[in-house]
Design a protein around this nucleic acid. Sequence first.
DNA 1: AGTTGGACCTGACTGC
DNA 2: TGCAGTCAGGTCCAAC
Length: 294
Amino acid sequence: MPELPEAETIRCQLESEVAGATIRKVRVLIPRAAREHVSAREMSRLVVGRRIARVGRRGKAVLLLLEGGGGHSRPATRSGQVARPASLIIRLGMTGLIRVVPAKEPIDKYTAAVLELEDERQIRFLDQRQFGLISARPGHDPDAMPEFEGYGPEPFSDEFSPEYLKRAFARRGAQLEVVLMDQKVIAGIGKIYADEICFRAGLRPTRRANGLTGPMRERLWRATREVLAEAIRCRGSSAVDEGYRDVYGNRGQFQERMYVYQRTGERCRVCGTPIKRTPMAGGRGMHWCPKCQL
DNA sequence: AGTTGGACCTGACTGC
DNA sequence: TGCAGTCAGGTCCAAC
């Protein structure tokens, strides 16, 4: 499922494909995908006629950063007002995919939204399980958007540090893996990378977050950056039953480097001990090595 | 305020 | 073969 490394891979590829292109029309085919936004009209007002300046990312979400009106680009409103910059937000949810295709390519049934570009291509947002989200907001700053309210720091920002973890974990008596996946603590980590980060830090995911020592938090901090950076280099994960594909339809490669995720009962690649699975709140499993993780 | 568990959603898989 | 049940998980929400 798309977490930070998958979203970053998509961001990077999308930017090279569509930066400079202008959006001609937005069509939402699965209304549920736009459930959090005010209206289709409002989305069109913010998006139609705008040029894509850059592609951004916040946590697991991809943002198309759109230029305002005036200057050399076409104004977005007919009333002559100068349009302010805006952003189109796509949160990938569990099964969200983004594709850039020629307009004539047939639309499949999982297509949640289509952004028609002026160059006869389309950016398509596909989403099998409909947990994803598409919306639009004024401005380019994700931290000013309701979608990201309260979000924690990006793992590669200066704000994210062992000191930050000390503060963020202070009153968190929940399990380490649960806290790692809390977007308000750190943005961008989900099940796969939470499992792998705990393994590389040598910490059991069942530990209480506020029970970690200074050296443990230091290891966790380092492991977080290392795992996510490696996963980005691998262009994300397409694990066994996962449908994740990048903008070009290619699978990620990080699944080949996983130590614990969905390896219940298989031998640890470091010590040979069978990998354990412990149910987490909500019934999902946390995977870990009883010998390598303490 | 923090924690827990259910709901949402669909396809793959398991067991009878 | 078919069908019910279970699992997967990002995020929100209600209950404690």
